[in-house]
Design a binder for these strands. Structure first.
Length: 569
DNA sequence: GGAAGCGTTGGTGCC
DNA sequence: TGGCACCAACGCTTC
């Protein structure tokens, strides 16, 4: 029997390596490729203007590609629960194909749609193609729990063999026996809408830096893969968060929407590596894809992964509720209405209705952080380490505000905002899960100076500070008054004064974190016995005995010994 | 079951 | 200028 199939695009906005689409094409006489503009995402307000634009560009690209094959993309508005019964009936559908999505909303939505399909006697074909591996299989291989360390993840994966190889994109031949019934009013009925059609204001929107779509994704990947040496030597910590041109691939938005298949990228890198010396996970390019896999698996296997409450992997920390601090972290400037575009609507309303006139105190005073926000808002992307710096600052470093607040802002503004990676990294940086060395705090001054000593990044995004010498550009408030006058920027008048002192507050927060951890261990019982707590001897000044070398120095001396032995050989 | 090993990418101060 | 200990003793994983 040859089916009438609907292939439902959600993520996976591509033709290459799309196994469920191929399955539909091979088993059908007729196929309708559809994308549903779900009001859930329009209403939620969690998608910023740049990501909407990226999505619509991706859909346009997909439609163009289908047209080249003699088919079309059908963009349908409405909730999936309303749309499917209608199209099942109208188009006499017997098969529905789609890519598996493990996010909670998607799971719930898909289970409802699967039920509807059953009611309409529609066969459902689902495939894993958004991740390298099936998250459920990784969890099963790890004894029913997601691996919580990268090393553990690698161990589990090493037993699972390599990821499946990517599938080729469909060709015109695939569409000779399987046709798409096109309607004469297709464009008006099923065309890709504009931002304005969706009721989104494009006033003040920045030019496109990273255009959406599979075509751009594949071109971008090829450009990077052509640089053999760069690919083989890639080490994430050695790339720069402050370079004027992105120092990493910026393929993340394309992976998020599935414009690029992670398996295609993985095997593309593999081909470049072949026969050459290359960097290794976790820092290598392959390593970056494994991090994505790590967080996808953790999110798929953890309830309430995006929030602290009810999340079994997250430390429960008594964060402050501090509106002024949150605004200061979030807001770049309030100089004009233009600057308000693309900020969370709730925050705009709150601020405009506020009777608090001390606007200066609600601005972010840190030059490098203001630059990151400007870049996020305009371009929808900043380097991973820049995200670390601002995330640490908002949470355990300085402002002591819940990682969920930061997660919401990133969710809205980043092109690559991804449920699993966003929540996972926020927990990491706030030392709520995965990462526990909470006393390692990013300094908003030192971090910038180290990564961009000349302050070129600041000069680009924050020209008001460009006349300050590099010594002061990261902390202009310590510049002498005469220098501020010379630079044409008086701190407190033209530029906000700091509202917290990093050195003081970060020390205070380290002790708060220590206390939170101690409290939780106390209240939740013996989650895990700490060897340091009860096992090790304490040494003080009165003791003549020398303390044993620390774990790290012991480890290092072991390494040294091995190296010496190796050299002798 | 308990001890030991070790963790993607910090900052500071000392030598 | 670069290497190292230390911060303060976490918590997952392995043996």
């Amino acid at each position: 029997m040859k089916h009438h199939s609907v292939h439902w695009f959600r993520k996976g906005l591509r033709l290459h390596d799309n196994p469920s689409l191929i399955a539909a094409l091979k088993s059908s006489r007729k196929i309708w490729p559809i994308f549903i503009l779900d009001p859930h995402f329009v209403k939620s307000g969690t998608v910023g203007i740049n990501r909407w634009r990226f999505l619509l560009e991706s859909l346009m690209d997909l439609d163009r590609s289908f047209q080249e094959l003699g088919s079309r993309l059908f963009v349908i508005r409405g909730s999936p629960a309303e749309v499917f019964p209608k199209i099942f009936k109208d188009w006499e559908i017997s098969q529905l194909t789609f890519e598996i999505d493990t996010e909670p909303y998607a799971r719930q939505r898909d289970s409802e749609v699967i039920k509807l399909a059953e009611e309409h006697e529609v066969k459902v074909v689902q495939t894993v193609s958004h991740t390298l591996f099936d998250s459920e299989k990784i969890i099963k291989a790890n004894g029913g729990k997601p691996p919580l360390t990268y090393q553990r993840m690698q161990t589990v994966l090493s037993k699972m063999g390599p990821p499946s190889e990517p599938m080729a994109a469909p060709t015109k031949e695939n569409f000779t026996e399987c046709k798409t019934p096109e309607e004469s009013d297709h464009s008006s009925k099923y065309g890709v809408p504009t931002l304005e059609d969706l009721g989104l204001s494009t006033e003040g929107i920045s030019p496109v830096i990273f255009p959406g779509g599979e075509t751009e994704a594949l071109n971008r990947m090829e450009r990077y893969l052509a640089r053999d040496k760069w690919v083989c030597n890639f080490e994430k910590p050695k790339t720069s968060p402050n370079s004027l041109k992105a120092s990493t691939t910026v393929l993340s938005p394309y992976l998020k929407f599935g414009c690029l298949s992670v398996r295609s990228f993985y095997y593309g890198i593999q081909a470049v590596y072949s026969g050459k010396t290359h960097s290794k996970p976790p820092v290598s390019l392959h390593g970056q894809l494994l991090w994505r896999e790590f967080f996808y698996t953790a999110a798929a296997g953890t309830p309430n992964f995006h929030q602290m409450k009810g999340n079994p992997v997250s430390l429960q920390i008594p964060w402050d509720e501090n509106r002024a601090f949150l605004d200061a972290w979030t807001w770049f400037t309030l100089q004009s209405v233009y600057e308000l575009v693309a900020f969370p609507v709730a925050l705009i309303d709150d601020l405009l209705l506020s009777t608090d006139t001390s606007i200066a105190g609600r601005q972010n005073w840190l030059p490098i952080h203001r630059c990151y926000y400007d870049a996020i808002r305009k371009e929808g992307w900043i380097h991973h380490l820049a995200r670390h710096a601002v995330a640490c600052f908002l949470t355990r470093g300085d402002l002591w505000i819940s990682w969920e607040e930061g997660e919401r802002v990133f969710e809205e503004l980043l092109l690559d905002a991804d449920y699993s990676l966003n929540a996972g990294n926020w927990m990491w940086l706030s030392a709520s899960a995965f990462f526990h060395q909470y006393f390692r705090v990013y300094s908003p001054i030192v971090f910038g100076k180290k990564t961009d000593p000349n302050g070129d990044y600041i000069k680009k995004y924050l020209p008001i500070l460009k006349k300050f010498p590099p010594k002061y550009i990261y902390e202009p408030w310590v510049a002498p008054r005469s220098m501020q006058e010379q630079a044409g920027c008086i701190i407190g008048e033209d530029y906000p004064k700091p509202i917290v002192d990093h050195a003081t507050i970060s020390k205070k927060n380290i002790s708060r974190m220590k206390e939170a951890r101690a409290n939780q261990l106390g209240t939740e019982g013996k989650k895990s016995a700490s060897t340091a707590k009860d096992g090790k001897r304490k040494f003080d000044d009165a003791s003549d005995e020398k303390p044993p070398p620390s774990t790290k120095s012991k480890r290092d001396s072991k390494k040294q010994k091995k190296l010496t032995q190796f050299m002798k050989k």
